[in-house]
Simulated assay, not measured.
Amino acid sequence: MPASGRLQDWWRRRRRSDDRGDASIQMAIVYPFVLLAAIAVIQASMWYYARQIALTAAREGVTAARAYQAGPADGTARARQVLGRTAGDSLRSLSVSARSDGERVRVQVSGTTQSMIPGIEGLAITQSASGPVERWVPGP
């Protein structure tokens, strides 16, 4: 066998024996990034879900507050009722406010999401909805 052939065989054998443990090192480097990406996706999903809960409560509150002879207090009560049924642990530190200028009513729901990282407060969420106040107007 020529010298270059023996050198190539020696090099192949040496590389195979030196590769032991490479997979463990690669996983030790890659795994934290995969874990952070998974936590980020879960946290974003929790934020989106809590945002949808707040928006639903605000819309329901506006629907109740804009009804004929209803007021902002009716909207606040309805929004709190919806939050009591749906929010659970997804939305914390809730606050609901409603106001009306006689023409339009606006309900705002605020809170914070639950955090995946212990000791860190969740993201703040504020959603609002508005609509015209229904009133009776005599016909022509």
Rank of each mutant, 00 (worst) to 15 (best):
A3T: 14
A3Y: 10
G5C: 09
R6P: 04
R6G: 14
R6L: 13
L7G: 13
L7W: 13
L7Q: 15
W10F: 09
W10K: 10
W11G: 11
R12L: 14
R12D: 08
R13P: 08
R13N: 12
R14N: 11
R14Y: 10
R14G: 10
R14I: 09
S17A: 14
D18T: 09
R20W: 09
R20L: 10
R20I: 15
A23R: 02
S24F: 08
I25M: 08
Q26M: 04
Q26V: 08
A28F: 03
I29V: 12
V30L: 13
V30N: 01
F33N: 02
V34D: 02
L35F: 11
L36H: 04
A37S: 07
A37R: 00
A38I: 07
A38Y: 00
I39V: 10
A40L: 10
I42T: 03
Q43S: 03
Q43H: 00
S45H: 00
S45F: 01
S45D: 00
M46A: 02
W47E: 06
Y48R: 01
Y49A: 05
A50E: 03
A50R: 01
A50G: 02
R51Y: 08
Q52L: 14
I53M: 06
I53E: 00
L55M: 10
T56L: 11
T56K: 06
A57W: 09
R59E: 15
G61V: 06
G61H: 13
A65K: 00
A65D: 00
Y68L: 14
Y68N: 15
Y68F: 12
Q69I: 07
A70I: 01
A70K: 11
A70R: 11
G71N: 15
P72R: 00
D74R: 03
G75W: 09
T76L: 02
T76D: 05
A77R: 01
R78S: 04
R80A: 11
Q81V: 02
L83V: 05
L83A: 01
G84D: 06
T86K: 09
T86A: 10
A87T: 03
A87I: 02
A87S: 00
G88C: 02
G88D: 01
R92C: 02
S93C: 14
L94G: 02
L94F: 03
S97T: 15
S97L: 06
R99Y: 12
R99H: 12
R99E: 13
D101Y: 05
E103N: 08
E103R: 04
R104S: 10
R106Y: 04
R106C: 15
V107T: 08
V109K: 05
S110P: 08
S110W: 04
S110D: 14
T113M: 07
T113G: 06
Q114L: 15
Q114C: 07
S115G: 05
S115F: 11
M116R: 04
M116V: 08
I117M: 12
I117Y: 11
P118S: 05
P118A: 09
I120L: 15
I120A: 12
E121R: 12
L123T: 13
L123R: 14
I125E: 02
S128K: 01
A129F: 03
A129M: 08
S130M: 06
S130H: 00
G131K: 07
V133Y: 06
R135P: 03
R135D: 08
P138E: 14
P138Q: 14
P138T: 11
G139F: 05
